[in-house]
Amino acid sequence: MPMDLSAQIDRLRTPGYRRSVLLRRLAAAALVLAAALHVLLSAARADPLTLTFARDVAPGTTLTADDVVLARLPAQAVPRGALSDPALAEGQVLAAAAAEGEVVTSVRLVGPDLAAALTAGAAEGEEFSMVPVPLAEPGIIPMLHHGAVVDVVGQGPRTVASGGRVVTVADEGTALVLLRQPEALAVAAAALSEPLTLVLSKRSTPFSIP
């Protein structure tokens, strides 16, 4: 290999046909390399900018600019509802735990899109609300997860509401639960006068989990 390189250098130094051929070959190779780099860079620039999580984020976290980052991803890897503007995520509450690199979508954040996704199987015209439930027994928190079906139980015990969906659980022992509108109002009223807890339910529910 050193001898070949030395020979090529000698050809470049010596005027003549061989040097012309070698120079043309080197120019052609450089053009091919430049074209390939241009194609790769153009393809990378064509990938959409998509908001992703910059680090692992716990459920119930209010997102800040440090929690998200824009990244270029292939269009086929970007799910429906993906966000592309950090301002749309900042200040929003994360419903379920997220890992670094995951795409930020509207259904991962507490809001109307998440509510619509959770109630996709409900009867047309039914209204739902998210209501915070202060838990009298915080020991149940480790058993609660996003999308879990729960009943809200008060003193007596009596069932205040049934068939709700856990949206997220805050560290201070309050669960955000999605309920049909009349039951959400009943839970909000009961929370003012009696301790409440959640019971994991096995009953079927028309709600769906995104």
Rank of each mutant, 00 (worst) to 15 (best):
L5Y: 07
L5I: 15
S6E: 15
D10S: 15
R11N: 09
R11T: 15
L12G: 14
L12I: 09
R13C: 09
T14D: 08
P15T: 12
Y17H: 13
Y17C: 03
V21G: 00
L22M: 12
L23W: 00
A27D: 13
A28I: 09
A30W: 07
L31E: 11
A34S: 13
A36Q: 01
A36V: 15
L37I: 03
H38A: 15
L41S: 13
S42L: 10
A43G: 07
A43L: 13
A44V: 04
A46N: 11
A46Y: 01
P48Y: 04
L49Y: 02
L49K: 11
L49T: 12
T50H: 08
L51V: 10
A54E: 10
R55P: 02
V57I: 12
P59N: 02
P59E: 09
P59S: 09
L63M: 06
L63R: 08
V69D: 10
V69E: 14
L70A: 13
R72A: 12
P74F: 08
G81V: 08
G81W: 08
G81A: 10
A82F: 11
A82Q: 11
D85M: 09
P86R: 07
A87W: 00
L88Y: 00
A89H: 02
G91I: 00
G91R: 10
L94Y: 05
A96D: 12
A97C: 00
A97W: 01
E100K: 14
E100V: 12
E100M: 10
V103R: 03
T105C: 11
T105S: 13
V107L: 00
R108W: 03
L109P: 04
G111M: 00
G111S: 02
G111H: 01
D113F: 04
A117F: 02
A117C: 05
L118G: 00
T119M: 05
A120F: 07
G121Q: 06
A122Y: 07
A123R: 13
E124Q: 12
G125T: 06
G125Q: 07
G125C: 08
M130L: 13
M130N: 01
L135F: 09
A136C: 03
A136I: 02
A136H: 11
A136G: 15
E137G: 01
E137M: 01
G139M: 04
G139Q: 10
I141M: 13
M143W: 11
H145Q: 13
H146R: 11
H146Q: 14
G147M: 06
G147D: 10
V149E: 07
V149Y: 03
V150D: 06
Q155G: 04
G156Q: 04
G156V: 04
P157S: 06
R158S: 15
R158M: 12
A161G: 09
G163E: 03
G164P: 04
V167A: 12
V169S: 12
D171E: 15
D171F: 01
E172H: 13
T174N: 00
T174S: 11
L176R: 05
L176M: 11
L178F: 01
L178G: 05
Q181E: 14
P182C: 06
A189I: 05
A189G: 02
A190D: 01
L192I: 00
L192R: 14
S193M: 03
S193A: 08
E194C: 01
T197H: 10
T197N: 10
L198Y: 03
L198H: 04
L198I: 01
V199N: 02
L200I: 15
S201P: 01
F207V: 02
S208H: 12
I209M: 12
P210A: 09
